[in-house]
Amino acid sequence: MHQFRKTVLMTLCMALVVAFGVAAPMNFVQAAGPAFPGKEIHMIVPWSPGGAVDMTARMIQKIAAADGIKIIVENVPGATGSIGLAKVASAPADGYTVGLATTSLLALIAQDMTKVRNEQFSYLNQVSIEQLLMLVPKGGPAQSLEEFIAYMKKNPGKVSIGTPGNNNLNHIFAAMAAKTAGVDFVNVPYPGASKAINDLSGKQIDGAVLKTSESRGQIEAGMVMAVGVFSETRNPALPNVPTFKEKGHDVFPYGLLEQICYLVGPADLPADVSAKLVSIFKKALAHPDYAKFAKDNGFTNSDVNSEALRKKIYSMQKGFNEAAPRLFKKK
C-alpha cells in the first residue's frame, strides 16, 4: 500500500512538472544587460496555434533562434485578434513584447467593432503580403474570369461566393467581383477558410475569395481553380492567373487594400529599442529560409518598416473606413 502511495505521489509530482512546463511559458528573467535584447522577446500571435500568422511567427522564431535571439511565441486568440493586440498595446513599452497584427484589425476598426486603435502601436516591420484570389470549382460552369463574370450576369443575385468570416477584406473583394458584373451576389460566410474550400471543391458554392496560402494545395491538385488575383501584380506562385486589373476591372476604388501581416509594439517604444527591433526582424525576414517559406506558401513581402509602415496602415485604414459603410450591411 505504501508502495502505491509513493507511486501515486510520484505520478502526481511528475504530472505537476509537466503541467507547469506546458502551462507557463515561463519567463525566467535574466539580469537585463545594457544591450537590448537582454532576455526573451514575447511575440503575441492574436490567433490560435496552427494558422497562417502563427506559422509565420514560428518561422521567424526558428530563424531568429539561429542568430541567438530568443523569441517566445504566445498565442492569445479571441475577438478577431482584438484581445491579443490589446495585450500588446497595454504591455510595458520596453521592446520585450511585440505582436503580429493583420489587415483584419483595420476592418474591425472601420466598423467600430473593437476598442483597439492604430494609435496604440509602434510600427516595426511588414511581415507578409497575402494576395487574395477569386476561386471557382474545377469543372464548374465558369472556368475563367470572363466566364465567371458572364455567369454572374446571367444569374443576377443568385451566384454564391464564400468568404472566411465577413465584413473583412475578402468580403470587400467578393463585392468588387460582383460589381464588375454589375449584379448582386450571395455572400456565404464561413468560420474558416478550410470549410469554404471544402464546399467549393464539392461545388456547394459557386466561388470563393481566399488567400493563396489557403488554396494553393487544392489548386495544384485540380480541385479548384483561381480565375483572378485581387492585386496589382500576378502571384509568383501562380504565374498563369491574371489580375483583375489586366482584365480591365478596378477592384481598388478605395485605394490599395492588401491582406498584410505586420509587427507592432506598444506605442512610445524608445527610439533605440524600436530601431534595434526593426533591424533584428529585418535580418530574419531577409533570411533565405524565410524567402523559401514565403515562396512555398504563395505570399510575398517587401521591406516596409517604421514610419513607412505606419503611413501604409493609416492610408489603408482610410480606404476601409470608406468601403465599410458602403459594402457591409449594418443590421
Partner: peptide, 25 residues
C-alpha cells in the same frame, strides 16, 4: 483534401509547413 478537420490537425499541418513540407492533397 488538405483540409484540417479540427484544431489539432490544423496544428499538424502547420508543423509540416515549418518542416518545409507543402501540405495539401
Amino acid at each position: 483534401l488538405g483540409i484540417p478537420p479540427n484544431a489539432v490537425m490544423a496544428l499538424m499541418l502547420g508543423a509540416m509547413i515549418i518542416h518545409n513540407i507543402q501540405p495539401g492533397p
